[in-house]
Design a protein around this nucleic acid. Structure first.
Lengths: 137, 137
DNA sequence: GTCTATGCAAACAATTTGCACAGCG
DNA sequence: CGCTGTGCAAATTGTTTGCATAGAC
């Protein structure tokens, strides 16, 4: 298990190490409060502002990405090498990640057509997962 | 110019008519506060909570869609027949809408692959527009 | 030892809610 | 005229900030 060793000149504190670690090992897309609650289990004195400050630092350093799913607040996930996208179930909130070569083609096409330099693409699909479809009849 | 005639059993009030009208005719993607300010020009006594209540009603009825662009608060736009997507400039905030047959293909592909019933797709591309690219050198 | 990061409480911003009155149907 | 929608102010929720102290380097 890789640990946080350096933070581009910023200090590596126990809180930052813990928070990054939790993000790293949580499958999902945590929001600030979920992360806070998890962190408190291991370090009860940690404060929510530390969580926000750490998230904003990680985001600035490009270590995590901020997502805006339906309605609610922000979710954060550790940035991975491969670009990936999200399929969200409107019934149970489950998030499935996927990749698709088609997104690369959309980027290329729109870049040519608009003159934008396109840095990133995010595709988000919504619908009902198999189980929720059955439950809804 | 088409006017709001009915609201699925909900009452059509002057405020709702005004708000929907403003959304309708604003090119862009208004947020609650922008909409509020526009509405006040025509109806100074309108309140911000009315704006929020109307937006949430419209959203429930499927008349408008809520977008979550980078960071900030929600934006709302009247739902149109054609699905369309967004290209956002990170420099100046400009939003360009586009359509692409590739999104239909992504939906079909993911639907087959995941067993989800996919209701909608939203693609959001970020980058720098031609002008901002020049200004940044 | 110096200077940045933390915890706490208080400030802010976006959105929601309770209540008495206004006005649609 | 009954009942839903509105304006206003106050409440909530998510996030940020000021300040004194803790702790990384």
């Amino acid at each position: 298990m890789v640990e946080m060793q350096e933070l581009s000149g910023q200090r590596v504190t126990s809180q930052r190490r813990l928070l990054f670690d939790l993000l790293r090992h949580s499958e999902g897309h945590l929001d600030a409060d979920e992360l806070y609650r998890l962190a408190k289990e291991r370090e009860p004195r940690i404060s929510l502002s530390t969580v926000y400050r750490a998230l904003s630092l990680f985001k600035e350093l490009g270590l995590v990405e901020e997502r805006h799913f339906a309605d609610e607040h922000h979710h954060y996930e550790v940035k991975r090498k491969r670009e990936h996208h999200h399929l969200v179930c409107l019934g149970c909130g489950k998030v499935v990640e996927f990749q698709s070569p088609l997104t690369k083609r959309i980027k290329e096409h729109m870049s040519r057509q608009s003159g934008f330099e396109i840095l990133n693409a995010s595709v988000s699909l919504e619908g009902y997962c198999e189980r929720c479809r059955q439950e809804r009849g």
